Amino acid sequence: MNTLRQYRIALQIFQSNRLRRDYRDLSEVPEYEPLGEFFFNEMYGPRDFSQRDQEGRRLHHFLGFLPGVRLRDLEEVLELLELTYQLDEDLAQRMLAADAGTDFDEMTYEYFYRLADKYDERFRQLTLVRSSLYNVFQLSRSPILGLALRRSHFVARLAGIGTVHTFLLRGYEALQNVATIEHFAETIYQRELDRLNRIYQR
Rank of each mutant, 00 (worst) to 15 (best):
T3H: 12
Q6S: 12
Y7H: 11
R8M: 06
L11R: 01
Q15M: 05
N17H: 08
R20S: 10
D25I: 02
P34R: 07
L35P: 00
F40N: 02
P46D: 13
R47N: 10
D48S: 10
D53S: 08
R58D: 08
H60I: 12
G64S: 14
G64T: 05
G64N: 13
G68S: 06
R70G: 15
L71R: 09
R72D: 15
R72M: 03
L74Q: 04
L74I: 07
L74W: 11
E76Q: 15
V77H: 13
L78N: 13
E79Q: 13
L80E: 05
L83G: 09
L83N: 01
Q86I: 02
R94G: 13
R94F: 13
D99T: 10
T102E: 13
T108F: 03
Y111V: 06
A116W: 00
K118A: 09
L126Q: 02
V129L: 02
R130P: 01
R130T: 02
S131C: 06
S131V: 07
N135D: 14
L139H: 07
S142H: 03
P143E: 09
P143S: 06
G146H: 11
G146R: 12
L149T: 00
S152G: 13
F154A: 15
A156N: 00
R157D: 12
R157P: 01
T163N: 12
T166H: 01
L168S: 02
L169D: 07
G171P: 00
A174D: 01
L175T: 04
L175W: 04
Q176P: 02
N177G: 12
A179I: 10
T180H: 12
T180C: 12
F184C: 05
A185L: 07
T187K: 07
Q190H: 14
L193Y: 09
D194Q: 14
R198W: 10
